[in-house]
Write a protein that binds this DNA or RNA. Structure first.
Lengths: 185, 185
DNA sequence: CTTGTATATGAAACGAGTTGCATAGCAGGA
DNA sequence: TCCTGCTATGCAACTCGTTTCATATACAAG
């Protein structure tokens, strides 16, 4: 269960509430992990009960109070232990690939619209990643000599960028194949 | 729930038993979807109860009898319906990326061995995909004018190949970054 | 003063996926 | 004869993830 560890890493980078974590999971952490607020609240509660996190009630003005979580000593050792365990190279799960192979038994033309929709979504995501890279790592406001943490964040983001570029090229390939099949009928 | 649909596609391509499906999910279908035999047997039973699959007891010699499943009319319409529904572009989940960002709070040297292990695993997977491509699509035994089904299988496999190549390039980037960080300490 | 939006947290139910265990036929080798 | 290994199917328990619903504060727009 890496959600627990993703939360530990995120809270080590900066303590925060469940709500804030949920938003990070839509942004930077979301480059490589997704989670809904329900999942996050549930896990936070459990981790706090297990003594891996500390909580602090933070009164706020102009908005509801929040609970700020930070990593306890037990959490740090749990993360460290996990970091030293080998993990399996992840296996893929692409709904779209199932659909593509399924198109052999259906109308390929319907799939073209779907693939184009995915193409647009990945184009948007790539633009979003590139904007983030410019803002945080390669732009004018970024530090000239980044520390190890920022270097590591950057290389993960570069992975997301590479993934989106690869995906877009592949979707072009898929579209060309679908058009070829359609014209051959 | 795309496992159901992945099974429908696979059984349309060729009917087979739960055991055979489990092995396809380790091979060609495994390029883009994974499932264990327990999952498969459970879903097969449910789909048969729902009338989406037909079963046929096949006596065998030299080995235990098997149940051969094939797609019923209800299964075909269920697949067709799903193919026409839009799906969300999949979001990524990379345990390794969590580890990489976590390395900022731990020993980066330990991560280098892990990343090298993943690099080897992806190298093997790429070689496996390329061998499959040569055997089924680009080699001497492959048909010169493939039908739509084979074209689609091929473009999915090309996606797997592109993914592995991208991943290997990224892992090289990660390793270079980790070495740079280590030498700077 | 109602409606909409953003912040903030949570329960409950369900569906999907993993892990461990159990059973059984049949073949080949020590 | 026993052990190993491949084929073949399945149950049970558990964890993880998704969906739906519910609650509450606060501010801004109409």
């Amino acid at each position: 269960m890496a959600l627990e560890h993703a939360i530990l890493v995120s809270l080590l980078e900066k303590p925060g509430s469940g709500y804030e974590l949920a938003r990070r999971f839509e942004r930077s952490i979301g480059y490589f992990w997704t989670a809904t607020h329900q999942q996050i609240y549930r896990v936070l509660k459990r981790m706090e009960a297990d003594g891996r996190l500390d909580v602090r009630e933070v009164p706020q003005q102009g908005r509801p109070d929040k609970k700020e979580y930070s990593v306890a000593a037990l959490g740090r050792t749990a993360l460290s232990q996990w970091l030293h365990e080998p993990i399996e190279p992840e296996s893929v799960r692409h709904d779209l690939a199932v659909k593509i192979r399924g198109a052999a038994f259906d109308d390929p033309a319907a799939l073209i619209r779907e693939v184009e929709r995915h193409h647009r979504a990945h184009t948007d995501r790539l633009a979003h990643y590139l904007a983030g890279e410019l803002r945080d790592f390669t732009g004018a406001g970024a530090p000239a000599t980044p520390d190890a943490g920022r270097e590591l964040q950057h290389v993960v983001l570069r992975g997301g960028i590479a993934y989106e570029r690869m995906t877009l090229a592949w979707l072009d390939d898929v579209l060309a194949t679908l058009h070829r099949i359609r014209s051959e009928r």
